[in-house]
Design a binder for these strands. Structure first.
Lengths: 140, 140
DNA sequence: GCAATAAGATTACAGGTGTAATCTAAAACT
DNA sequence: AGTTTTAGATTACACCTGTAATCTTATTGC
């Protein structure tokens, strides 16, 4: 049941995650760079509503749209799917590809290190309350 | 001209990246877990050939298939696309999502740290202290 | 009140994808 | 050589996606 949101639809979600609720025309406006017709954007909004990932409230004759799912949750889902589908769940390889290939900036490196340090000191809370390892993370 | 390879097709590529050349039936065999009919797999091979990402040599009446693109290159491409499309190029957010959400194992953390240390020694080229990662990459 | 607007709903349509079945031609068997 | 097998080629078909145009209906301007 991984929520299926297409590429174009994701752009719309991004707009709504930035600010909401928005009318369809406001969304269109914020998507000018994509060069989509107003009709096209409206189609996407419609599909997103049908998919249950966008909700709306009526405001006179218009709808005001809002995301119905959390951005973080969505990103986590997408990331998980990407890891599984492209890297077959091999996290190390994924990390290596990103780190080596993207040539992280010092800024990004520092940030990552701080993340890792947090992760480190956070060791106690990281496994589930019952002591079981949270997930079957493979390393081949 | 980002090569477009579908999900199912990726599974086929994975098989060929593991070992090649392979006949279609050998590929089918290695994909048993997917529970696809032989016809289906053959369709994928066909499409992959048409897309130019798989090549073949004739062996009597059969074809022996091989990947026509490098796995590393492909992964890098996919990763780049994922970063751009899902995280709008925000590498820090991507890293944070993976690191925080996936609860890396100690093993993976160590590995990542070693990657970072390697990366460190070559931190001459990068600089973006203004928060915005300079979006340049690729130098092969 | 009635026509012009305009918001959302419905319909369209081609190309990609999952999932094969059928067609064709050549090799293998008898 | 003729028939059977079988490999790849072609065709099928429904659903998703990008990309709208048209339809319907409520609202707003006379």
């Amino acid at each position: 049941m991984t929520i299926r949101v297409s590429e174009a639809e994701k752009s719309v979600m991004d707009v709504l995650w930035q600010e909401s609720p928005l009318s369809s025309l406001e969304v269109v406006e914020k998507l000018q760079s994509q060069d989509w017709s107003e009709k096209t954007v409206k189609t996407f909004l419609n599909r997103l509503v049908k998919k249950g990932v966008v909700s709306f409230q009526k405001d006179g004759r218009r709808y005001l749209y809002s995301p119905a799912i959390e951005r973080d949750e969505f990103l986590a889902d997408e990331s998980e799917g990407f890891l599984e589908k492209v890297f077959k769940g091999n996290m190390k390889e994924l990390l290596a590809t990103f780190v080596e290939n993207k040539q992280l900036s010092t800024d990004e490196l520092d940030y990552l290190k701080s993340l890792l340090n947090d992760s480190d000191s956070d060791e106690s809370t990281k496994s589930s309350k019952d002591g079981r390892p949270a997930k079957e993370l493979k390393d081949d």
